[in-house]
Write a protein that binds this DNA or RNA. Structure first.
Length: 275
DNA sequence: AACAAGACCTGCATGC
DNA sequence: TGCATGCAGGTCTTGT
């Protein structure tokens, strides 16, 4: 899935096509994704006018004119397309919205790790999926001192800590690997030892890699396209992710990028440049 | 309480 | 060709 840059890219692309439009038809083609759809979702969506689109971490919040909010998460393989047919296997088009200008919005998710929920405006802070989520890394306030405080005393690895959405919202496996590489920190380092200058450097690296990825339209993976079907291209700029055995940029060590498994997930790093 | 491991799903690449 | 295995952007639940 899409991590923060991909979700942000989708949010922007989708907003251009759906903001201000009315939903004339809502089809739920199965009863659930990762969890059951909320009750009456089909009825709540039908006839609603779509307002602004917001993002919190990896969630998209689609505001509706009846004071409702449609909450979307893409899981690992979720795609949202608006307009032409998405070229995907229609078996996995689980939710299809038709808008008043004829635009068709499809939520396609082969693995079904995604989710949809419905909440009332003002409930965001109390919603179980959103409450407790850490700060937005691109907002003011996400800096070295915050990160050092959040990591203080943590006995898990810095890799695992950064994947924890309560510490910082929106990072996933790719951008955690890339940020740790840029900050020169080993993914195996104890989270609690990241403080002071190290924390400041890490916070800056997280912000920089996310900014650059958003600029590039995200990273295109097997299951990801932007709302208009275009491909992002940040994957060409990955320094370590998916590059096992290759030299990292500007590094002369013979070993190259290593892959290890941490809490069941691949971590890519350079043992020489990351300590 | 904090942490690690397992579970949830499908599709694809690889190797025999 | 067919089959088994391992791997994939996430996070929720279970067990220690």
């Amino acid at each position: 899935m899409p991590e923060l840059p991909e979700v942000e890219t989708i949010r922007r692309g989708l907003a251009l096509k759906v903001s201000g439009r009315r939903i004339v038809r809502a089809e739920l083609r199965r009863p659930d994704l990762r969890r059951p759809f909320p009750p009456l979702l089909e009825r709540r969506l039908t006839g609603a006018r779509i307002g602004a689109l917001a993002r919190r971490g990896k969630y998209i919040l689609l505001e509706l004119d009846d004071d409702g909010i449609l909450l979307l998460h893409l899981g690992m393989s979720g795609r949202i397309t608006a307009g032409a047919a998405n070229g995907e296997d229609a078996r996995h088009d689980h939710v299809v919205l038709t808008l008043d200008d004829g635009t068709v919005v499809r939520f396609n998710d082969a693995r079904r790790f995604g989710l949809l929920d419905y909440l009332r405006r003002g409930e965001e802070a109390r919603h179980p999926l959103l409450a407790g989520m850490g700060p937005e890394p691109l907002e003011p306030g996400f800096d070295g001192p915050y990160l050092a405080r959040a990591l203080d005393g943590k006995m898990t690895s810095i890799k695992a800590a950064l994947l924890d959405q309560r510490i910082v919202a929106g990072l996933g496996n790719i951008y955690v690997c890339e940020a740790l590489y840029r900050a020169g920190l080993s993914p195996r380092r104890l989270a609690g030892t990241v403080a002071g200058t190290r924390a400041a450097k890490l916070a800056a690296a997280i912000r920089a890699v996310l900014h650059e990825a958003i600029e590039a339209g995200g990273s295109s993976l097997r299951d990801y396209v932007q709302a208009d079907g275009e491909l992002g291209y940040f994957q060409h700029r990955w320094a370590v992710y998916g590059r096992e055995g290759e030299p990292c940029p500007g590094c002369t060590c013979a070993e190259g990028v290593r892959r290890i498994v941490q809490s069941g997930r691949s971590t890519f790093f350079c043992a020489r440049r990351q300590r």
